[in-house]
Every structure is written in structure tokens, then in C-alpha cells.
């Protein structure tokens, strides 16, 4: 692994292509599946992001998808994002992820814990259907306990109804 990273860094010096990644948390980040495991260096705030890491995953693949109110079904728009997550996981086949299910604050605490678990499992089921071993994917629900955005309006709520995939360090 260490050798790989060193080699990657050398290559990346010559490639000398720098992307400025959108900051984490935006809903519609542009991404490009062709970059997985590629030789381009991605930086965020001037810091190089190492391939195969949580940060690499988050900037190359959209790390989150969003849900309708009280729903756990995956929307058509989210399929592309999940396909990319699956591609990334196929490339870094030794990596494990945890999928966090979240809800907006417009529900009751216990029901939202259950709903968040259902959302996280929707993502897990999709990734498994794309050939990722289920033992590589853990799920956890945070219900409404960890909003991404604070605000008592539909725009905040819609960003909080999410499932976030994070690479296990």
C-alpha cells in the first residue's frame, strides 16, 4: 500500500493536474467516474487528497444521496451516484464503508432512527446488487440527531434526509 502511494505521488507530479474539489456537503457535485484510481491529483484547500481515502471517495464520488420526506426509496437521480460509489468500491476492493442514514427534524426521534436505518440499508442493498460484498458495508442510523444543515425550512430538511457513505479508516 505504501509503495503504491509513493508511486502514485511520483506519477502525479508529472501529471500535474489539479482539481479544486467542491466542498463536502453540496448536493449536486460534479464527478467523473473515469478518475477513480487515476493519476490526477485532487486537492482540497491546497491539501492533496490521497486516493482510496475517505476524502478521495467524497470528492470523486458523491458521498451522499437524498430522500423524499418519510421515504427510503432511491430516486432515479441518485442511481448514478450510487453506481459511482460501487465503481469506486470495486477499484479499491480492500476498502470498507459505513453508510449513515439520516432524517430531517420533522419526525419523531424513535421513528426517525428506524427510518434512517431503512435509508442506509437502501444504499447498502443497491451496492450489494452491484456486486459489492455485503460484509464490506456497515450501516448506522443517526435518525435526526446529526443534521448536515441547520435550519427550519424545506431546503435544510431536504439536505438532511440523506444517506452518507464514508470509507472506514
Amino acid at each position: 500500500m505504501e509503495n503504491y502511494i509513493t508511486k502514485f505521488r511520483l506519477l502525479s507530479l508529472f501529471a500535474a493536474v489539479t482539481l479544486v474539489a467542491a466542498c463536502s456537503g453540496t448536493a449536486d457535485r460534479a464527478y467523473d467516474g473515469g478518475m477513480i484510481g487515476g493519476t490526477m491529483t485532487v486537492t482540497r484547500d491546497g491539501v492533496e487528497i490521497r486516493p482510496g481515502t475517505t476524502e478521495d471517495f467524497a470528492v470523486r464520488a458523491p458521498d451522499r444521496i437524498f430522500f423524499d420526506f418519510d421515504k427510503s426509496s432511491i430516486s432515479r437521480e441518485s442511481l448514478k451516484a450510487l453506481q459511482f460509489q460501487a465503481d469506486w468500491l470495486k477499484h479499491y476492493s480492500n476498502k470498507k464503508v459505513v453508510v449513515e442514514g439520516h432524517c430531517d427534524e420533522r419526525g419523531t426521534r424513535e421513528y426517525n432512527l428506524a427510518l434512517g436505518e431503512r435509508r442506509a440499508n437502501s444504499v447498502k442493498d443497491y451496492l450489494v446488487s452491484k456486486g459489492i460484498r455485503s460484509s464490506r458495508i456497515k450501516v448506522i442510523s443517526y435518525g435526526k440527531e446529526r443534521p448536515a444543515v441547520v435550519g427550519s425550512n424545506e431546503s435544510s430538511w431536504s439536505q438532511n434526509r440523506r444517506a452518507v457513505t464514508a470509507v472506514v479508516k
Partner: peptide, 26 residues
Amino acid sequence: PGMTFAPRFSPNGKKIIISMANKGNT
């Protein structure tokens, strides 16, 4: 095997009733 939550004691204190969420079902 899954997340346990929503606990409450029975009226005589001898049992606890909970939810367990596993594989998307609670």
C-alpha cells in the same frame, strides 16, 4: 445483530420492551 432502541420497562420492572432495526426492518 442490529440497532436496538426505543426501550421501556414493563410495569413490574421485570421486562424491557425494545425495537430492533436490522436489514431495513424494525
